[in-house]
Write a protein that binds this DNA or RNA. Sequence first.
DNA 1: AAGCGGATCGTCT
DNA 2: GACGATCCGCTTG
Length: 216
Amino acid sequence: MEHHQNPQPQYQHALLTPLATPLQRDFFLPAPDRVARALLGKLIVRILDGEQLTGRIVETEAYFGLDDPAAHAYAGETARNRILFGPPGHAYVYFIYGMHYCLNASCEPSGHAGCVLIRALEPLSGLATMARLRRQPASRPHLLTSGPGKLCQALAITRADSNGSDLTDPNASLFFADDGFRPAQIAVTPRIGISKAADHPARFVIPHSKFLSRAL
DNA sequence: AAGCGGATCGTCT
DNA sequence: GACGATCCGCTTG
C-alpha cells in the first residue's frame, strides 16, 4: 500500500489465494457458451466491510441475444437490460419473482447482448458472513450458494449495489479471478426454470460438485 | 423423494 | 394487469 516498488499485484485487496489474477476484458469477448464454459472453476471475489468473500463457480448458463427467446435481451434493449448491450465483463443484475437477485456477466463486444448467468458457487472464504446474510446456520455450506438467488443473497449482491459494475476491476468490491484451477470435466444440460427454448443445452456444470443448484 | 403453492414487485404489454 | 433465468416450507407417498 505504502510502497510503490513492490512488483506484487497493485490492487488494494490482496487475494486470499495469492496466485490468483483478475480476469481480463478479453476473457469475456467470446460467445456466451464459450464464456460460460471458461468461467467454470474461476473465482468470484466479493469485498464486504473489508472482508473477502470468495467462491468457485461450479454452474453457469449461457444466454444469447436477439436469437434466444429465453434471454432478457431477446426483445431488444430496455432500461432494465441495457448493460447487456454494453462492453463485456460487466455485471448484469436483475430482480426476479419479487424477491431474488441474479448475477450475470456480460460478454461479446458492445452491441451484442450475450451474457452468462452464474448459478452456483462452491463457497471458499467468508462462510460465516454468507450464512448470516442468508439467515441460515453456518453448518450447511452446500445451502449457501447453490442457486442464482442464494449466491446473490450470500454475497449481498443487489441491483442497486452491483448492476453495471466492472467485473475485471480488482479494486472493485466485486470481481472475477483465476487461481489456476481447471475442472477435470464439464457436463452440459438444458437451462433451468425457463419456458422458451427449454431444450437448448446451455447449462454448464462441474459434474458431481456438491454445490450445484440441482444434481445432474 | 418429489411435487405444490405462496411470497412479492419490477418490468413490459 | 400478468408474469418471471427463485426459494422455501409443507404435503404426500
